[in-house]
Simulated scan of single mutants.
Amino acid sequence: MTREPFDYSPITERPRLTWPDGKRVAFYVGLNVETFLPDRASTSIWPLDLIPDPLNHGWRDYGARVGVWRVIEILDKYGVRASTLLNSLVAEQNPQIIKAGVERDWAWLAHGSTNSILHTGLEPADERQVLTEIVGTIEAATGQRPQGWMGPALTETLNTPALLAELGLGYVLDWTNDDQPYPLTVPGMLSVPYTVELNDLGLFLRGLTGPDFLQMVKDQYDVLRADSADSGRVMALALHPFVIGQPFRAKYLDLALEYIAAQPDVWLTTSDEIAAHYRTSALATQNSR
């Protein structure tokens, strides 16, 4: 059997995790800033086998043209900096979005080249070249070298964490199996919590409504805060501008962030800052024992 890239560690048996200023829940928005190829299938609202596919491609492209700008206004309103899951081709196709994020000091994570191509089936040498190009393109466009990675549709190869470590990255979001960061078996690499549950793409395409989304965000925070009485937790909110950026949904994102931002025990942060704090506090403490 292929060994998992992490060891089993029940959350009940770990040292206490603390966040800055005594906060109990570290909250970040994972904003998927993606681009899609018109002649290749990807996330679709109706499964069709057409080239081109105006219906599905247009639905996705709404995010870059309109939806992301609506989301930016809402994030700004509550002082939330995005943890941006960035396809490197956005630098070429939608540079205005990157400019807006740089002005707001967003965190930038490598998220493949396009969400029309999954990060799988690569030999190590080919993958090293692909990752080098993706990371280099994002660094050139944003002025920051990415610290984290999330593959398109959360895809990796068996070699991805080690190759990312070679390139100076320090964490991945692909393994959505925890409410706290934890070390991978690749030296220096962490897993930071992400979510496929509190994720607009999965929720709304299953038929949930804006009020459902709002209640789920509130419930997620409330339970994590209760859990954090003994040790800090991470709450990720995964957003896609072509989904949450629709007018009838954006209203409920506004209300959800209003609720989160008003909580006295929340640390409004980024995945970069969560990884850095864990590395310099919790992980350093564990290693010194």
Rank of each mutant, 00 (worst) to 15 (best):
residue 289 R to M: 04
residue 82 A to E: 09
residue 37 L to T: 14
residue 58 G to K: 07
residue 257 L to V: 03
residue 197 E to V: 06
residue 154 L to E: 14
residue 279 R to V: 07
residue 51 I to L: 02
residue 271 S to N: 02
residue 11 I to H: 01
residue 129 Q to K: 15
residue 236 A to I: 00
residue 130 V to M: 15
residue 29 V to M: 07
residue 153 A to H: 15
residue 179 D to E: 12
residue 131 L to D: 03
residue 278 Y to P: 00
residue 71 V to P: 01
residue 102 V to M: 11
residue 166 E to R: 14
residue 75 L to R: 06
residue 156 E to W: 09
residue 150 M to A: 09
residue 38 P to E: 10
residue 123 E to A: 15
residue 218 K to D: 05
residue 71 V to T: 14
residue 182 Y to F: 15
residue 254 D to H: 08
residue 215 Q to C: 00
residue 262 A to G: 04
residue 235 M to I: 03
residue 197 E to D: 12
residue 56 N to Y: 09
residue 78 Y to P: 07
residue 74 I to K: 06
residue 82 A to F: 08
residue 154 L to C: 13
residue 143 G to E: 06
residue 227 D to S: 08
residue 224 L to W: 00
residue 15 P to S: 08
residue 216 M to C: 01
residue 220 Q to H: 12
residue 9 S to I: 05
residue 137 T to D: 08
residue 112 G to T: 12
residue 30 G to L: 15
residue 65 R to T: 13
residue 244 I to R: 00
residue 22 G to M: 03
residue 15 P to Q: 07
residue 159 N to Y: 15
residue 147 Q to T: 05
residue 235 M to D: 00
residue 166 E to W: 07
residue 103 E to M: 11
residue 130 V to T: 06
residue 57 H to I: 01
residue 174 D to C: 11
residue 192 V to W: 02
residue 37 L to V: 13
residue 57 H to S: 02
residue 71 V to G: 01
residue 255 L to F: 03
residue 236 A to Y: 00
residue 175 W to Y: 15
residue 21 D to R: 13
residue 176 T to P: 04
